[in-house]
Design a protein around this nucleic acid. Structure first.
Lengths: 332, 332
DNA sequence: AATAATATTTGAAACGTTTCAATAAATTGA
DNA sequence: TCAATTTATTGAAACGTTTCAAATATTATT
């Protein structure tokens, strides 16, 4: 059955479509008796206006920011999202979130969809695809949509601003903390091979402890658990510097399963300071990333660029990561 | 500056708007040289088609599902999102996520924005606002947008389908597990007062143990931590049934701070089975919710309704929750 | 070179609304 | 009752696209 339109209502009510539209928009120019008749017809015809057709020039557009994250299923990104959302709301912007789930083609796709949905600005936590330099970013530039990268190479796209943290420094501090505690046999459980953050953190670890053993674990609980079980089998070490807290927690679990105690036998440092880190049986020593602040700043920059008329210069903001010492590390 | 339209592109490229439209829609009737010229003009003019105007029968719109969650910063919802996204992608739908952050006005707002962005269907995890019966839901019905509620009263909105789990049963099972282990002094750390899930779970606890003490904690790590510290001060109990895993973890931390051991002195059961639950120092006994499956089913229903022409009847799907016994509970 | 076949482009109608100047109807004041 | 006001309604233009039959250009065949 054909969908009922404003025209059907008008005809049935013996009235013009202009009048029906007036009723629809609650304009007070309609006589009560007419309004009632129209409303009754609308009801009996089960009429529903087609939202898309109502949108016209001059009708108030929603101000929206898009946010594409690599992995929505990760407390680290959750905090970034919350921070971005808070800041956006302050400026009366809404936040539309999409996740690429670590798949590059989905990242490209997400950007395309958000652009089609008419966002005013974009925050993206990009996957690093060497070689495939970013046709979707060029798209954004072409469409004049300001965008801000969270964790990304600044040289990547000239017009993009970047908000990031000093990973190298954070990892350096964490490693120094272990060295100062007398540890000499260090293992670094690194993250995904192509992660920008991971390589920066590895660099920090190596600057402090050039002899540290590097093992590529990954970014999840399971990755940490498996890495210790498989890759560190029979290997002697007294301290672990982990890519992030999840890996640290996974590693800790595996050590316990092997009958080793943290921090008595092995000290562990994480990275991120996710909420649960301080609630663990052995509260985790970790490098705190100001996650909300990153989201907040990224949104602030995007909105500022939306409002500014001239081409704003791209910025690079580097926030500090701070070592938080809890109970998972101990003097040797 | 006026927004560029297809007309501007056509004029600039010396071609009809029909041709530009053909280029836009990748119809292969356009000569290569023409296509290239048009694309170049589009680029130089920063042209973006207005999505709303494309909404016509048979036109190639982006197929999108909106998803509004109460709290993006919660591993429970994260899993639901991932499940919904997986299913959506199977059917070539994209998922736009917004979070109400537990604020009712934001939920209403999020729905409005998503509708304005022309989504095809909506999945919502609604806040329970008694009395304010859902003008935004009526809006959805008015716009003929199928929507599915995750965790919600089915009577709430007649046309909505609901995907939920059997909370009462899950909580009952968890409580029985403790009773069978010989516990008699039970405390139930309930969730937020207005939460549907929380009251269903409380009902399950009380059915198994009518004498259980009920304390309203909340839904976060901190809530669990504080509830045990403040509301259970000096209170004697040997087992805790918690609203969710986060509360359980928070409670466990506080007990440890008080020198109590889990499960030796106190047994604890959580709810949800978030990822980290099995990696804790004391792996958590909990009631597993098929979170991804919930998201998956919700998306599947929404998409089915989008595709079906006639008014589809609303459905109510109740998934089972399963008790997973780990180490945080013990015979007394 | 003429015709037929095919490929490309055009132009106008359609989509379902809102807007607003013009008109019609109702009300007021005398 | 008549004009002057005020209030209510109309009808057509606009919004930015897609669609599709018709017109035109190109290529192939003879």
């Amino acid at each position: 059955m054909r969908r009922k339109t404003i025209k059907d209502v008008a005809q049935e009510a013996g009235v013009s479509i202009g009048t029906v539209s007036a009723v629809l928009n609650r304009r007070d120019s309609v006589r009560l008796v007419t309004r009632k008749r129209v409303l009754k017809i609308m009801d009996s015809l089960n009429y529903r206006p087609v939202e898309a057709a109502r949108r016209r020039l001059g009708s108030p557009r929603e101000k929206t920011l898009g946010l594409v994250v690599k992995e929505i299923h990760n407390p680290y990104f959750a905090d970034i999202i919350v921070g971005a959302q808070e800041e956006a709301r302050k400026h009366d912007f809404r936040l539309l979130v999409m996740s690429s789930e670590q798949v590059f083609s989905r990242e490209v796709d997400a950007v395309r969809v958000l652009v089609a949905k008419d966002i005013d600005g974009l925050i993206i936590n990009p996957l690093l695809e060497l070689g495939t330099l970013s046709s979707h970013f060029q798209d954004l530039e072409a469409n004049n949509i300001p965008f801000v990268m969270i964790e990304g190479l600044s040289g990547d796209v000239s017009t993009a601003s970047v908000v990031d943290i000093d990973n190298e420094r954070g990892a350096f501090d964490a490693t120094m903390h272990l060295l100062e505690a007398g540890h000499t046999e260090l293992v670094h459980l690194a993250g995904p091979k192509y992660s920008q953050h991971s390589s920066e953190r590895s660099a920090g670890v190596l600057r402090a402890a050039p002899g540290a053993r590097i093992v590529h674990a990954g970014a999840t609980l399971e990755d940490g658990f498996n890495a210790v079980r498989d890759q560190l089998k029979g290997c002697s070490f007294t301290a672990l510097v982990c890519y992030n807290d999840l890996v640290a927690i996974g590693a800790m679990r595996q050590l316990m399963d092997q009958g080793l105690l943290v921090p008595k036998d092995v000290s562990i440092v994480g990275f991120d300071d996710i909420d649960v880190a301080s609630y663990l049986g052995v509260p985790l020593t970790t490098v705190r990333i100001p996650k909300r602040e990153m989201g907040r700043q990224a949104a602030a920059i995007a909105i500022e660029q939306i409002h500014s008329t001239e081409d704003s210069k791209s910025r690079r903001i580097l926030l500090d990561a701070e070592l938080i010492v809890r109970s998972s590390t101990r003097k040797r």
